[in-house]
C-alpha cells in the first residue's frame, strides 16, 4: 500500500523476478532470484509464482478452463485434476468454463485470472491492483475469493493496491513511501488504512 510513485509496482516486479535488481537479494522459498538466468527465472515464474494482473491478461483465443490450465500446459505438466476442480469450484465459474474471455464479464475474467494463478499451486501469488478495473461489487467478490484462497487453500498472496477497502481484506498491510517501507498494520480495517494513508499527503 502506498501513494502513487511510492515504488509498489517496482517492488513487486523485483519480487516476482520480472525486473532486475541494482542491489540486494530476492528469495522465494530457498531460491535467490538474483542468481538465476533468464531460463531459470522463467521456470521459477512458471512453477513457483502466480500472477494476477489489473487488466486480467487472459489469452483471448482460449476458453476459461484452457486459460486456467495454461501455466501447466506451458510447463508440459499434467494438471492436478482434483485441485483444478477445487479451484474452479472456489471461483464459482463451473458453468462458464468453455466460454472465451470476451464472453465473460470483467469480474468473471478476473476470477479466471485468479484461478489461473492458483491452479499451478505456486508458492506465492502476486496481484497487481486486481480490483483496479472492476466495479465495487465485482471487486469485493474477487477480494473475498482471494481471502478464501488464503484461509482455505493456504495460499500466500501479495497484493498491490491503493484502495483502503481492498487492503482491509489482507492479514497484513505494508506501507511504502518514496521507495521505502514506512509502516505496517496487522489485521487492518479500511478505516485504519485510510487514516494511515491520509498522513502521506502532508
Amino acid at each position: 500500500m502506498g501513494p502513487s510513485g511510492s515504488g509498489k509496482s517496482t517492488l513487486m516486479h523485483c519480487l516476482a523476478g520480472l525486473d532486475d535488481l541494482t542491489s540486494g537479494q530476492v528469495l522465494i522459498g530457498e531460491t535467490d532470484l538474483t542468481t538465476l538466468n533468464d531460463k531459470h527465472l522463467t521456470m521459477l515464474r512458471r512453477d513457483k509464482i502466480g500472477f494476477v494482473f489489473q487488466a486480467y491478461n487472459l489469452v483471448p483465443t482460449l476458453t476459461a478452463i484452457e486459460n486456467i490450465t495454461l501455466p501447466m500446459d506451458l510447463a508440459g505438466r499434467k494438471a492436478d485434476q482434483p485441485w483444478v476442480d477445487q479451484v474452479v469450484d472456489t471461483i464459482g465459474l463451473a458453468d462458464r468454463l468453455n466460454h472465451r474471455p470476451s464472453e465473460l464479464s470483467g469480474g468473471q475474467q478476473q476470477r479466471v485470472a485468479v484461478g489461473r494463478a492458483l491452479a499451478g499451486r505456486p508458492e506465492i501469488i502476486f496481484a497487481d491492483e486486481p480490483t483496479g478495473n472492476l466495479d465495487s461489487r465485482s471487486g469485493a467478490e474477487i477480494l473475498d475469493f482471494m481471502r478464501r484462497a488464503v484461509r482455505e487453500l493456504g495460499q500466500t498472496i501479495v497484493m498491490v493496491t491503493h484502495d483502503p477497502v481492498a487492503a482491509s481484506y489482507a492479514d497484513r498491510v505494508v506501507f511504502l513511501a518514496d521507495g521505502r517501507i514506512v509502516d505496517e498494520i496487522i489485521d487492518p480495517t479500511a478505516e485504519a488504512v485510510l487514516d494511515r494513508m491520509k498522513t502521506f499527503g502532508r
Binding site: 516476482a16 522463467t42 515464474r45 512458471r46 512453477d47 502466480g50 491478461n57 506451458l74 510447463a75 489461473r116
Partner: peptide
C-alpha cells in the same frame, strides 16, 4: 503484450 504476458506466467523464450 500477449507474448509478454505468456512470458510472465512462465512461457520460455523458446516457446
Amino acid at each position: 503484450k500477449e507474448m509478454a504476458m505468456l512470458r510472465a506466467i512462465g512461457a520460455s523464450r523458446r516457446q
